[in-house]
Every structure is written in structure tokens, then in C-alpha cells.
Amino acid sequence: MSTPETKGSSGVGSSANGSSAERSWPLWEVFVRGKRGLSHVHVGSLHAPDAVMALRNGRDVYTRRQEGVSLWVVKSSDITASSPDERDSFFDPAADKVYRHPTFYDVPEDVEYL
């Protein structure tokens, strides 16, 4: 289950036994809608030469047991991700605002529907 965080490494020498053709295939991230009413969720990744093959292979690999009613494939290289190096500062603004959670507030226990 790859995430877009690692780009497929390149520069590996091609071999005589035919795996070279596959190496040029881009990486696709696969998202499945489990059932109506749910959003698409990332389930994994695969290599495929084009979007149509990525969809078909995604179906065969990730929905063999009717796990989905809809499938997205997205080229990993098209995803922009936040950097783990900046994780702390990037998410800092939310760290000191516990009052955004309902449990922050002191209310009497015997008040209903609150």
C-alpha cells in the first residue's frame, strides 16, 4: 500500500528479462467508495501504463470481494503532500485550540441534550 509520499525510484538498470517495460509505468493511487453514502478511501497503489488499465487492474486487485461501488485512480505524481519535516509547524496552529472540542467545556452533568 503505497502512499504518494515516495516517488518510484528511477535510474535502476533495466534487465534483459522483460521487467524493463513495466518500470516506465507510472504509479497510481487507488481510491474505493465502499458503498453509497461513503466517501472514496485510499486503499493502495499499482503501476499501470494508462488510466484505463489502472482502473481495470485496480478493480481486480482491490475489489475482488465486492469491496466497492466506485473507483478512482490518481497518478501519484499529481498529488501534492505536506512534508513530514514541517509536520509540527504545519499543524501547529490547531495544537493550542482545545476549545474547538466540545469536551473542553465544563457544564453540569444533569443537563440533557447538551
Binding site: 500500500m1 535502476v12 534487465s15 513495466e22 486487485v61 475482488r64
Partner: peptide, 25 residues
Amino acid sequence: DEAGHGLYLYSAAETLGVDRGQLLD
């Protein structure tokens, strides 16, 4: 299923910066 399991695992390995073709070699 076994083929699918192989693919899940090669994908997991690729997140560590290796290439499936290289592993197959």
C-alpha cells in the same frame, strides 16, 4: 488472491524507495 497479496506487498516495499522490477530481478 496470492497474486494480489504479492502486489500489496511489492507496493508496500516500493514506499521504502525500491522498485518492484528491481526486486523481481
